[in-house]
Simulated scan of single mutants.
Amino acid sequence: MRTTDLSELAAFDAVARHRSFRKASEERGVTASAISHAVSNLEARVGVRLLNRTTRSVSLTDAGAMLLAQLSPAFGDIGAALDTLNRFRDTPFGKVRINAPNSIAPFVLGPMIGPLLTANPNLELEIIATDRLVDIVDEGFDAGIRLGESLRDGMTAVKIEPRLRFAVVGSPAYFQHRPLPTKPADLMQHVCIRNLYPSGVGYPWSFTRDGEETDVNVKGPLALHDHELMIEAALAGVALAYVWEDRARPYVDSGRLLSCLTDWIAPEDWLYLYYPTRRYISAGLRAVIQALRAGG
């Protein structure tokens, strides 16, 4: 097979997995028109239509689905074969694509990036931070990060650090005319920022102490899903915010925000790095796992 044939097959594989020429072009690092040209050349060469294209969608024909089913493990084997060359290098080589929630990525990945890349100069990290729930296989990621261990079948989960927890914070100006809450129920007498998932669905503020667990559906005129905006609103004295403790810490340490109900907030579930069980683990991904893995 000629090199151009393999390149065309790789272009088709990317489009078929993403159901998108644009996303395939981003993964392959070329223009969408180059991807389209490569797939058209492949279809002309084999004499069979592999993709159905409209202005809004891309879908597989029966022939395309059959080809993808055989190509995917083949490309996996090629990647694994190339990755074995890492044993002849001092450090891992190649790209590792990671997806992580935007709200926690700075605290989980931020401290790890510098030491990892310094120790592995041939490693390339590509991190996409979004609070949208992502299918890491369909979107071409090597691994993802998620709170809790509720993952779909076919995924391996590795417990990682740090373990995060929430904090309830407000500005000194907010508390000038209001007492600090001493128990979760007191929040019903306060103006609070309502927390949202990216989908727009709200979630309560959760607390636990001495085996007692309670959720509070707080009230207030502002609903947000971005923790940075919550911090800004709290700094402005608009309302109390329920945010990641690490995000609020610099403002609490400087006195610009006050933290309350600290004895009612327990650490969240562990964070997990997860990846497809049946996919080979590259040397680069192994390096990332080692850098993040929780001790004990």
Rank of each mutant, 00 (worst) to 15 (best):
133 L>W: 11
133 L>M: 10
134 V>A: 06
135 D>C: 07
137 V>F: 00
138 D>V: 14
140 G>N: 08
144 G>M: 00
145 I>T: 04
145 I>Y: 06
146 R>V: 12
147 L>T: 09
150 S>Y: 07
150 S>L: 12
152 R>Y: 05
152 R>P: 03
154 G>T: 00
155 M>P: 00
157 A>F: 04
157 A>K: 06
159 K>Q: 13
160 I>H: 01
161 E>G: 15
162 P>V: 01
162 P>Q: 04
163 R>C: 03
166 F>W: 12
166 F>A: 10
167 A>W: 06
167 A>N: 04
167 A>L: 06
168 V>K: 10
168 V>Y: 06
168 V>I: 14
170 G>H: 09
172 P>R: 07
174 Y>L: 06
178 R>S: 12
178 R>Y: 13
180 L>F: 10
180 L>A: 11
181 P>I: 12
181 P>T: 12
182 T>V: 11
184 P>Y: 05
185 A>C: 05
185 A>P: 06
185 A>L: 15
187 L>K: 07
189 Q>H: 12
190 H>I: 00
191 V>T: 15
195 N>S: 14
195 N>H: 09
196 L>H: 04
197 Y>M: 05
200 G>C: 06
200 G>N: 05
200 G>W: 03
201 V>P: 03
202 G>P: 10
203 Y>P: 05
203 Y>W: 14
204 P>L: 02
205 W>A: 08
205 W>F: 08
207 F>G: 09
207 F>D: 15
210 D>R: 13
214 T>R: 11
214 T>M: 15
215 D>L: 11
215 D>Y: 10
216 V>W: 01
217 N>F: 14
217 N>Q: 07
222 L>W: 13
223 A>W: 06
224 L>N: 07
225 H>M: 05
226 D>A: 11
227 H>G: 12
228 E>Y: 12
231 I>R: 06
232 E>K: 14
234 A>G: 02
235 L>Q: 02
237 G>S: 11
238 V>L: 13
238 V>R: 08
238 V>P: 02
238 V>D: 14
238 V>E: 15
240 L>N: 03
241 A>C: 10
241 A>V: 02
242 Y>E: 00
